[in-house]
Write a protein that binds this DNA or RNA. Structure first.
Lengths: 349, 349
DNA sequence: CTGAAAGCGCTTACAG
DNA sequence: CTGAAAGCGCTTACAG
């Protein structure tokens, strides 16, 4: 079925002007081989005739679609405050600078389980694909089999030799924990299921490194679970002996924790300090607002787009694992403990 | 520059099997004119060879890109909780059912002012375009000049003969106000800049109709502004005589109002009732949570996709202005006033 | 059931 | 500086 659109082609412009379509093509693309005056005329007439470039014709010639696929696993799509959608939005904006477009591809749980290639791939709709958000081990293999530049964003996999861009979760949590220790805290818990995602795990390790460096012992009671294997939040169980501070793997969990602490009669930061990660909406909804680490979405998107575009022009290009630094946002959810208060806390043992 | 990808084409499959590419095309597309056995063989070999369909070649033939553009004005992109991004996400999911993809197009303020066509249009990248979020009057004209099926989503314009899909703001606010009146409220304010967007205005009119129907007089003091001309929130000024209830144009403003009321010593709902609109994150962040109207995002996206796909196959198709019903979510921010309390309130006059 | 021919709109050598 | 020819990968008549 042919659409009844009155599509103007280069040939139409050429006919009107009594030149060839080759000349029109050169003029419109600012290429060598047309006199300046003819070029001007052609552009003018093209505008008058409402000419629109047919990118499909170009695509078929050079084998490029001028689209980049952004794949987000379905399970990340339910949230109200969607971090990934905002990342996608920034990606779309940056792709525009390269003359590219972004095609959003929600990876259904079904396709992920059945290891189906995404349609953007099997229909050749994209020149590269950014996988935004952790996918299953099995599906990583499927992605590896795709003959296309690809990039993991916001997660990585040790075994897959696929370039990735992640927030420096490790360093961010390390700095944040250092800050708590400098503020006099010695008994610090970490909240998060460390087997759930690499982000949560790496943030834990940054926390752990800080403990190690300061000669503080880590105990199992200091690791508090926040979600089940499927990623659904569960009630947080406080340890018998209360820590003086909590490092939460994300702001939403920090928010949940604050609510729970308040309900249990603990005040933040008087009774215990809480820090988050992400600096999303939740960080400003607690009272007091949360000290947290801001993920630099714009920088992540910019880096991701640059990296994938590099790979499109040079498929052998490897960038490895690139870290994007976060930034601590200091607010009021951390209390500075006086030396004697630290002692009192220790006596409780 | 030609990409060094080992692209398998139908011709390759045909050569391998000693048939013509026409036959391969028919087999792969399940068309008439190939024996079943040959069809099976072709599909099998195509799979083995890792054949991927070249959609650009198809596009150039039938003049369809199999993409739909979704344009969101830049000024709506700053928010943390992005309603429009979630709508876009649902649109992408529904487009998939039609074999289509969604291309996100952030309309920069610059392009909006200079009345530039979006690149998705001038490069023929889409078969239709959904404009998600109010654009300027001037830019509406630009959109009208685009020779492409188009659709306004979440707003409409009286003068533009462009189909639109909007939440039934009028009816939602009407029902909500009815509910307040049934709960004994007689002095009800509306919070929102009614010249800012058609949504805010229509919600106001629903509120107004409810007042009219119940013989309640509207007074200017009952209309409270919440944002300036550029859409930035301003401090809300309470009227001298406090109303018993507030109908807010959206949940975020309701949330802001609740914070302000609490800070000013008023308790919700004991001292005054508050209702919102949208049922977004903010509706559950107040305490108590807000009674509000839920916008049916999934239904809006489904309707929008169906409508634009209709127009793609039949450019003359007109659907007019389609309303998508919302749904009241009853929570605890509304107090039922006893008859005598209403009287007491009236005595204050 | 099978395939040769033509064409979609553009661009890339290459010849003049 | 200008353009005829060929080709990108597919599909649509049409002929056998």
């Amino acid at each position: 079925m042919k659409l009844m659109k009155s599509n103007i082609t280069m040939k139409d412009i050429a006919n009107k002007l009594g030149v060839s379509s080759v000349t029109v093509s050169k003029a419109l693309n600012d290429k060598e081989g047309v006199s300046d005056s003819l070029k001007v005329t052609i552009k003018k007439v093209a505008g008058e005739m409402g000419y629109r470039f047919n990118s499909a014709a170009k695509s078929i010639k050079d084998g490029l679609s001028y689209n980049i696929g952004v794949m987000i696993p379905q399970r990340f799509t339910g949230m109200n405050d969607s971090f990934y959608l905002r990342v996608y939005q920034e990606i779309a904006i940056h792709l525009d600078h390269y003359g590219y477009f972004g095609i959003l591809n929600i990876l259904s749980s079904e396709d992920e389980e059945q290891l189906n290639f995404p349609r953007v791939y099997s229909e050749n709709k994209v020149d590269g694909i950014i996988i935004l958000g952790q996918i299953s081990k099995k599906y990583i293999e499927t992605v590896q089999n795709m003959d296309l530049p690809k990039l993991f964003l916001d997660f990585y996999d040790e075994h897959a030799a696929i370039d990735s861009i992640v927030t420096d979760n490790f360093y961010g949590a390390y700095e944040l924990t250092n800050y708590l220790i400098q503020s006099g805290h010695r008994d610090i818990a970490y909240v998060g299921n460390i087997y759930s995602t690499s982000s949560i795990q790496d943030r834990f390790l940054g926390y752990y490194k800080s403990l190690l460096e300061h000669g503080l012992a880590f105990e199992d009671r200091l690791l508090l679970n926040d979600r089940d294997e499927r990623g659904y939040y569960i009630d947080i169980e406080l340890p018998e002996k209360m820590p003086t501070a909590f490092v939460c793997n994300c702001d939403q969990v920090a928010y949940n924790l604050c609510e729970f602490l308040n309900a249990s009669g603990y005040k933040v930061p008087e009774d215990c300090s809480v820090v988050g990660f992400d600096n999303d909406l939740y960080a400003t909804l607690t009272s007091p607002p949360l000290t947290t680490v801001e993920v630099d979405i714009e920088q992540m998107a910019r880096t991701a787009v640059k990296s994938i575009m590099d790979k499109v022009s040079n498929p052998n290009r490897r960038n490895g694992r690139v870290l994007v630094q976060g930034k601590i946002i200091y607010r009021d959810s951390v209390r500075t403990l006086e030396a004697d208060q630290v002692k009192i806390n220790n006596k409780h043992k």
